[in-house]
């Protein structure tokens, strides 16, 4: 149940019009995931198209993180298949998969005893050869590129634990970029950040989208973040896909209220709509 949607009004296309014509990089077919006999997610059908920005929204417990984990190969589906470039994910091997998809989870250890540079270098792990003693020149070059793209070269020698929340998020994203994968998967990248840092992270993701033809899949609670960048929005509720459509359709059909059971006011005027949660009774 992947509804074909017309290209969203503001979609930037990097190669043709990705939102309609792009070949799919990943394909989830009848995917389910269960834990202890209870179905958490699915069955779900979803195609991630090359070059698109796909945002996953939905209430707490809808299965957003599970969906991203399945996509990233961190979880194996209980049923159904996940295809990568036409190949079954499990046949691909973990490291090969990590060269195609880079995943930034939301929940990470509170303390990580690494500097920014060391963290970003770890993004090169799937590219290391078996008996490689230290990082190769190409690894160091990829680290430089990643630091540059995110704009945190100056933080290279700083311990991760001493950074602000926004800087830390940028460092994790840089580490994922160093994987040089086709798809970047972000799980709630703006959660727990103050408005300034939220804005920085949103702008960073937007910039990454502009600079390359990379595909981005992100889960978020921040609807405006989704409207601002998404080519398509996946509305997830109770482990099922309610809709998969462009931001305009999402707004005009009142999906936010349908999903969250809360009233939203839509503000128009800019290139993309903005919603505001109505408080009070």
């Amino acid at each position: 149940m992947t509804p074909r949607t017309p290209m969203t009004s503001g979609a930037r296309s990097t190669s043709g019009s990705p939102a309609t014509s792009g070949a799919s990089v990943a394909e989830l077919t009848a995917v389910e995931w269960s834990a202890a006999g209870a179905r958490v997610l699915g069955p779900i059908d979803l195609r991630v198209r090359a070059g698109e920005c796909l945002m996953v929204v939905g209430p707490n417990g809808a299965g957003k993180t599970t969906l991203l984990r399945l996509l990233a190969g961190v979880l194996d589906p209980s049923r159904g298949s996940v295809l990568w470039g036409g190949r079954e994910m499990r046949q691909l091997g973990r490291r090969a998969l990590a060269r195609r998809i880079a995943y930034v989870p939301q929940v990470r250890p509170a303390r990580v005893p690494l500097t920014v540079g060391e963290l970003v270098l770890q993004g090169r792990y799937p590219h290391f050869r078996r008996f490689q003693v230290g990082p190769a020149a190409e690894d160091l070059a990829a680290v430089e590129r990643a630091l540059d793209r995110v704009g945190i070269g100056r933080l290279r020698d700083r311990p991760l634990d001493e950074l602000s929340g926004g800087e830390r998020q940028a460092a994790w994203i840089a580490a994922a970029l160093a994987q040089e994968a086709e798809i970047l998967v972000l799980d709630e990248p703006t959660t727990h950040l103050d408005p300034r840092h939220q804005r920085e992270v949103v702008n960073l993701v937007g910039r990454l989208r502009h600079d390359s033809s990379g595909t981005v899949v992100a889960a978020t609670h921040d609807l405006n973040f989704a409207y601002h960048l998404a080519d398509r929005i996946v509305a997830l509720a109770d482990g099922r896909i309610l809709a998969c459509e462009g931001p305009e359709e999402f707004v005009s059909r009142g999906r936010a209220t349908e999903l969250f059971g809360a009233p939203f006011e839509v503000v128009r005027g800019g290139a993309r709509p903005v919603t505001v949660l109505e408080l009070g009774s």
């Binding site: 984990r69 990233a72 190969g73 961190v74 973990r94 490291r95 090969a96 998969l97 990590a98 060269r99 998809i101 880079a102 995943y103 930034v104 989870p105 929940v107 990470r108 770890q122 993004g123 792990y125 799937p126 994790w172 994922a176 994987q179």
Partner: peptide, 8 residues
């Protein structure tokens, strides 16, 4: 989780 995502 990060390690699994890196292909470990």
């Amino acid at each position: 989780e990060v390690a699994a995502g890196r292909g470990v």
